[in-house]
Amino acid sequence: MSLSIQYDSSFEGFLSAVFEIYRQHLDVGEFRPDRGDGNLGDGTPGDIFMQPFRIETSEDAANRLHRAILNFASEEVYNLLHAALLSEEPGVEMKILAYLKKLFSGTDPNYGRNPASAEMLPLYKIAQSVRREAGGLLGLVRFAVGPDNVLYAEIEPRFNVLQLMETHFSKRFANEKWLIYDSRRDYGIYHDEFGVQVVNLPGYKSGSMDLKDAFTDLWKEFYDSIAIKERENPKLLRRCLPVRYWNHLPERSVRFAAT
């Protein structure tokens, strides 16, 4: 009977699980990431008679698997698998596991360099959409200046991309204090002179960070005045700037409409 594996939803946790699967020769049927919100897995009610097998995250195991992936493939593949896992798509873990099994089987010495293998292609596509969202969001985070001169921003990305955006913002705003909060997953990253840390704001209400000030109004003024009426193209606009992001953009949101 195949097992259901529970892990803590982090990439290290997943790698530790893979390590244990190899060590104990487990037959895995599905993965259930524990995202800490009480909802295990992909929302389908699990078999109440079958307890998931919980695998604790071990840094050592994750490092060993990292080294193994580097040996058989490359750092790029490692990062790609990480990005694919961040999609939180139901079943993506099994796809990654299938890839790793084929990779470690050693039947094809060039397997790790083949971007078009049957197991790699779906992962490549998933990772691509995750990275596209992370890259696109770099420009769409909108900070508001709080009373303590801390910059606040709220995002609701489709994928769990906050970790992919961390480096960009800690370089760019190296000398500022800022907080980017993913209100959909209820965690954020906070940066100050001591570095970046993950924070939780229990009971946070969406929208309460969207503060307004004089420069927000100036920004809207700017946005409205650069529109060229003769060239308006709502379809193109929606394709470039999907409506699901508008809520947190002062220039497009009704929430920020002039008062």
């Binding site: 769409l140 370089k171 529109a227 060229i228 060239r231 606009l237």
Partner: peptide
């Protein structure tokens, strides 16, 4: 601030 060599779009005007 820094500059990102790939360039970043921050929003899109009404004409796309």
């Amino acid at each position: 601030g820094d500059a990102c060599s790939a360039g970043i779009c921050h929003t899109w005007a009404a004409d796309g």
